[in-house]
Design a protein around this nucleic acid. Structure first.
Lengths: 228, 228
DNA sequence: ACAAAAGTGTTCGGGATACACCCATGC
DNA sequence: GCATGGGTGTATCCCGAACACTTTTGT
């Protein structure tokens, strides 16, 4: 049975090797002004919060196996009472005007590792450029902003980011990840110096093959130095 | 009417000029193993989360006017099901075994600014040394730990701390605040250099009076440079 | 040979750290 | 005059930022 008062919402950041994206769903068209939303749904009665986020995400978008991390709770009594969201709520919720407190989660994944599969009340699930988020349902734009700041803070402490890289990667690939998430550019030499100096990574005795340029040295994550 | 599923818990850090303390309540004795807890209670139906934290804290301990900030949500389905907590729950809750999700808040105050006044189900409200927290009810030790890390992170970005100082203060007082919260010691010269260099504070044309040593220069917060 | 990305070193400025002595006041 | 905390300066190190050219491969 569902807990009518509490939901979870997931901000899943996806990286395609170039740019940072966010996973959105499209609601069925019931005439509401704004049909894009973060994947989210009610908590089940005896479900842990983290598990609930994982389940909801799987049900709506087909994604599973992500590392979801909490990044805030949103409970303004009017957060689901904007008239723009009423048509949808009326069709989907038993009690459309009931208050819902939502616990926000974020995760970071390689887009190519997952196939999107919309189901439940999601008419569609898709990746959207994280730097140009459209108007979203409810207070989901606020939630997105908070998730992005949390992600950036955690990246700079290097607690996230390796999810986006293969097991063996080049430093340029790693730099691309940092640049996409922080939406900025770094000097190649300085970035490499820092990565090596701080022992984020370990050099392997291997190089890229089949590239049309000088093959890059491969590195792997330094697990000795894993944070947390 | 209360929302039976959701509560708020408050970690109020108090500073007495020397050491960091936390506000605890003592539950009435119903034979439970552990009677100390953080002040917390259920959310009201149409109450905003932040307001709820403020209300609950006021009702249980008499404190009001604090700046409470969210620092995590705890929802393990078994978090209120430890047998140690059952005797108390049985006396105080309608449904003692019901799941409760709690949203944690923290605040930072000068202990001398407030008078503790226990009421509602708090038999007593008191300050306790933050460096020697006893076993608390429910998962309140976890909540405390998370609040303390959040507090420390925010202090180092100087987003909290001035609450603990009078309007006009000496740099030594400010240093004592930082040392108490971070539980460490700083070099006086380096601390002063940083405070002045980073323009955390503004020097006043005033000195302490009535002290039995060289009177210290007074400073005030540099509001131009307020974060957030 | 050319296109494309890899790889590499030095300089500079600023901030963090370590460290020890004299000063003004009340009693 | 003495106890108490206030107040000050310098040297060193490390980190972050800026900056341009050569190397290796595939085609």
């Amino acid at each position: 049975m569902q807990n009518p008062n509490v939901s979870v919402d997931c901000v899943v950041f996806g990286f395609d090797g170039q740019k940072l994206n966010v996973l959105l769903i499209e609601q069925e068209d019931f005439g509401q002004a704004c049909r894009f939303a973060l994947p989210g749904d009610h908590l089940e009665e005896e479900e842990d919060l983290d598990q609930s986020a994982a389940r909801v995400l799987r049900e709506l978008t087909g994604l599973s196996g992500l590392y979801l991390q909490q990044c805030g709770t949103f409970g303004d009594p009017s957060r689901v009472k904007d008239p723009k969201d009423l048509p949808w709520l009326t069709h989907v919720r038993k009690d459309p005007t009931a208050r819902v407190i939502t616990i926000a989660y974020y995760a970071l994944v390689k887009m190519t590792d997952f196939n999107l599969l919309a189901s439940s009340f999601a008419a569609r699930a898709f990746w959207h450029d994280a730097n140009e988020i459209p108007r979203l349902a409810f207070d989901h734009n606020m939630i997105f902003d908070q998730a992005l700041s949390t992600l950036r803070r955690e990246l700079s402490e290097l607690r996230v980011g390796f999810e986006l890289l293969p097991n063996k990667f080049t430093l340029s690939q790693m730099q691309a990840v940092h640049e996409a998430i922080l939406n900025s550019n770094f000097d190649k030499r300085n970035f490499r110096k820092k990565a090596l100096n701080d022992q984020w990574v370990v050099a392997l005795d291997e190089k890229q093959t089949g590239v049309v340029h000088k093959p890059a040295r491969l590195y792997t994550r330094n697990l000795e130095r894993a944070q947390n």
